[in-house]
Design a protein around this nucleic acid. Sequence first.
DNA 1: GCGTATACTAACCAACCAGTTGGTTATAAC
DNA 2: GTTATAACCAACTGGTTGGTTAGTATACGC
Lengths: 214, 214
Amino acid sequence: MKSPAPPRKRNPGESRQRILDAAARHFGEAGFDGARVDVIARTARINKQLLYHYFGNKDALFTHVLERAYQQLREQESALNLDGLPADEAILALVNFTWKFYLSHPDFIRLLNSENQMQARHLKRSRRIAAINAQHLKIYRALIARGQREKTVRGDLDPLQLSINIASLGFFYLMNRHTLSTVFKSDLNSERMRRKRLAVMRDVIGRWIRADRK
Amino acid sequence: MKSPAPPRKRNPGESRQRILDAAARHFGEAGFDGARVDVIARTARINKQLLYHYFGNKDALFTHVLERAYQQLREQESALNLDGLPADEAILALVNFTWKFYLSHPDFIRLLNSENQMQARHLKRSRRIAAINAQHLKIYRALIARGQREKTVRGDLDPLQLSINIASLGFFYLMNRHTLSTVFKSDLNSERMRRKRLAVMRDVIGRWIRADRK
DNA sequence: GCGTATACTAACCAACCAGTTGGTTATAAC
DNA sequence: GTTATAACCAACTGGTTGGTTAGTATACGC
């Protein structure tokens, strides 16, 4: 015979947080369609209806999780102090930062992947997402401009393309490491291969952005 | 009152093909978890049991679809005749080929994405996948070796990293164009932006692979 | 110390969905 | 023609799942 669960102390802030944490993990592992609301509720150790009480439905919960993930990325990026570095080295520092963020937030790339499989249907309706990402391209643009004054960075770099290049070289490697490792029979997730990958990415970006020496 | 469907002419080859085509489209659109076996059967205009008759279950069907997609890619890649080109230009021709393949086979990247979300659980059990991809790295390796003899390509290129770089710059752009377009408010899927992307990718790879001029 | 908004819960439900049952019929081999 | 095999089908099943109902418990304003 099961004794009824003792009534829990109320703590709305923490309950909300626990739901978001559990949702980020489970949505990341399983993707939107593969994730189960019941699993999230159980992991967060709250009742399923509390989840619906706070977030309305599965889609809205996913949107919150995505927004929070982007916010973490952009806040950390904005907190970087790159003023002491020459612009070309600062850009390489962004390569390192982006790579390390992906490595330390494995849910982030998987969440984004799932969202892209759905053609960004959640982000498209988000009213917060533009503000969250507002600083990103400005940082890149400013660095490129400074590099041109310093003559360490070539004159025709597009900040959007630079940002996409830096993201893609790391994101694709980590997201697709499962199929790549299988197809090419080599463990891309080993410490050695990960270190090598970062070196390659820095080399690729470094050679692309630098002003040509005459 | 509905008249019973007239008995269909038997055509096992075509029925199988229609199932695979419908499955590739629907798995691509919706991902493995989002896809519905009933939808595939209806689109293929066959009975659901025929699908189970041929493929056993949803996972096995997905595996077949994936293998076929890889096979198409690798067959076309192997059919390329790059012998007439200097090695550095031949590598850039592979950049073009890869990009065009992704563009003309939108299901391919989406299928792979879904498979990676599931940590390659289908490919890991496939016995055909290694053979299908056997030529790929050999092509890259041979081109790098020739480029070194011709002195157009630098001496320390790793074929696996080169292949991953070429794949990632295009794959990430196309797969993530939905979130990227939303976040950065610019239509990455426009003809103009797609042309620009190919130019950037050729530039990035070109600068990375070439032997340094003294 | 009373009223009410909200944090929280158990039990429930209808739609959905992968896979099965239990067949019929076309085709090919002999 | 007879028989074996495989192509093909409609209807069903049982477990699952997003979301709901109907309520109790607690904190807080007054």
